[in-house]
Amino acid sequence: MTALLVAEGLTKVFHRRFARGGDLCAVDDVSFTVHRGNVFGFLGPNGAGKSTTLRLILGLIYPTAGRVAIAGHDLSTDRLRALRNVGAFVEAPSFYPYLTGRKNLEIFTGLSGGVPAAEIDRVLELTGLKGREHEAVQVYSHGMKQRLGIAACLLPRPELLVLDEPTDGLDPHGIRQTRELIVHLARAEGLTIVLSSHLLSEVENLCNRVVILDRGRSILEGELAALERQCRRLEVSVDRPEKAAALLREKFGLAAEIHDTAFQAVQDHGQDARATGLHVVLDGTDLAAVNTALVQAGFAVRSLAPEARWLERIFLERTSSTDPGVRATEAQR
């Protein structure tokens, strides 16, 4: 795997002369590497700095510190070559509303050196816009504009695709179609994709590598599979949880935490409402072996399941709500 996009120590300070908060560090010393063939996700709450980071890697804004290289070309010294094989939109795709979808594609791709008409047809087909291409963009629905945005990014054929919240504002059908398209582009067409999202399920389903951003800082970065192994908990509902924890520590060297979130699950099943549970990070230990050991030692194991929304938990634990109102109520508790 070779590196296609390298960002080192990216920092962006917005000087806000008249704002009350003063200067704002929207991106703070963020580094990451995107390898060829990756689907790389930026995850973070609203205002975390995802769009700002994407603007930095596309040369739309200049970093206060740090550097970006795409396909070996430094963005600050060789912007044109760096961007030659990139298709991107930031914030939301934008078009000239009074021109047709097709005309928009023609003129934007003209800025990249132009593409044959057949290629435009192929991409219109792929994004499901064939038949509507001769209508002015101002009559397009939000979903069609979003798809036209992806179509524009695919012309001329890029090596790196950068999409900022590609499913933002779409209905469930639109979200599913867009995700299927992204999967197709990554698997079948072999594109390297960088996308941002505030939706956990999106990143979990699409990406193989993530960065979680919070208030401009990268708080977690890595392979999704590795993060899952390190962070995803096994939720065990068992009688005598202290004893069970001791057993797991002794036998597998696992640190189990006594917890009562299993409480609810047990209650739902109409069983002893006072039963408590264990949370344990398996980190590679076989789940079946853990189950067998507990049962053989005579524990009543009522349920044993990998945590369903582990990424959401990490996200909520480690990121902050940027809405000041919400933050204030949190502080009161």
Partner: peptide
């Protein structure tokens, strides 16, 4: 204002 400037400038044009 309409965001089309950034759409132009993510393309390799000086």
């Amino acid at each position: 204002e309409h965001g089309t400037l950034r759409a132009c400038l993510v393309r390799p044009v000086s």
